[in-house]
Design a protein around this nucleic acid. Sequence first.
DNA 1: CGGTTTTCCTAACATTGTTAGGCTCTGCCT
DNA 2: AGGCAGAGCCTAACAATGTTAGGAAAACCG
Lengths: 217, 217
Amino acid sequence: MPSEWEEPAPRDRRSIRHQSTKREIVESAWQLSDERGVTGWGLRDVAGRVGMRAPSLYVYFESKSALYDAMFADGCRAMLDRIEATEVDPDPVTMLHRAARVFFDFAVEQPARYALLYLRPVPGFEPSPESYRLAVAALQALVDVLASAGVRDASDIDLFTALMTGLASQQVSNDPQGRRWSQLVDRSVDMFLSATLDDSRVPGASARPRRKTNPAG
Amino acid sequence: MPSEWEEPAPRDRRSIRHQSTKREIVESAWQLSDERGVTGWGLRDVAGRVGMRAPSLYVYFESKSALYDAMFADGCRAMLDRIEATEVDPDPVTMLHRAARVFFDFAVEQPARYALLYLRPVPGFEPSPESYRLAVAALQALVDVLASAGVRDASDIDLFTALMTGLASQQVSNDPQGRRWSQLVDRSVDMFLSATLDDSRVPGASARPRRKTNPAG
DNA sequence: CGGTTTTCCTAACATTGTTAGGCTCTGCCT
DNA sequence: AGGCAGAGCCTAACAATGTTAGGAAAACCG
């Protein structure tokens, strides 16, 4: 299979121009998403920004949903890059804080990308299998970082991601500028640490690595 | 002031019919939201379900957004009812589990309502001041329950709500049927307990009520 | 019963995403 | 060079959506 996502047959100069225009469209769409929200623009707006009329966009994307899909894939790559750029540290506690940070900072610095990737604000849109694979890759990269922080149990990972998405969403929707939720990230990591890591790793943590559940009767 | 949100001048029989039709419309809208998602229907659909044509809905709501607002208010009251129906228990740990449950169960049993209230899936929609007040009332009721569970610090409350919204969202979007995230709710409450409550309240909890933050450098 | 208001309708408009069909220019092939 | 396939872009137009205008019937109230 020609793979199509990598180098487009190097002999074809037009294909290069095609891909470059595609990128330009996606970038304009992100720009508009930053300004007016992920759903706050139409195809005529994007087209105008790249000097076209709306129907011409269909040369590059078969639908608006396909454009969102390209944006989604683009966002996943951005997230993946951040995660993979995380410096490793021998201390698991430090690593856990970094894992939390890379996720939360992404939400703060790229709210539109964060929203499209994790809040799914576009009614009909579902990522294509290809893009979804990228999302899984990003998640997997995060899981790897967590593993290097000593978090390997599946439900610990779920708990961590739920915590992070919860905080990030609150940040994005309630407090786009302030640092209030940012501080809560560090606190929640400490909380998470004291509840999941065993004390051999975290000298200060509780000796009870997993307490029994106490459902309210 | 006539208040208008409560009893409509009791002498006017028409006003009663008006309010009743309004309720019927809102209920049909919820029905459609349950079937096709909060954004998966149009005014013509709702109208059809109550035996009308779309423009007639404008007798009752000045816009689709106003209909969403009525749904929002309705959802807030449903949530408020649940919270206020929470039985009090002298044991703070039990109370905290109940607080988590009432929130999470709402998300599981009324996914459409949960989505409209907390996930905000409708692009242009912002709740009106009146409806927003209801949302605040529901939040306040939850805060009161948390207070009765010994959680009074503002950032503890934020942490708790972020945790709950994170878990509930994961449940709603990843696992609408299973009980996986449900179990995580109890675990996360335990985690929360061990990190926030002081040990005088929870005999089994860690003796360190608040650990110092350790930002990754 | 007369007048007013409520309720509901049809017709139509603006804005969307989208399709059809045609012009123009590029770039490859003989 | 000539010619042709196709890429890129256009205008016109369609379908669906929320919404407005304006009118007819029904309900109410004196």
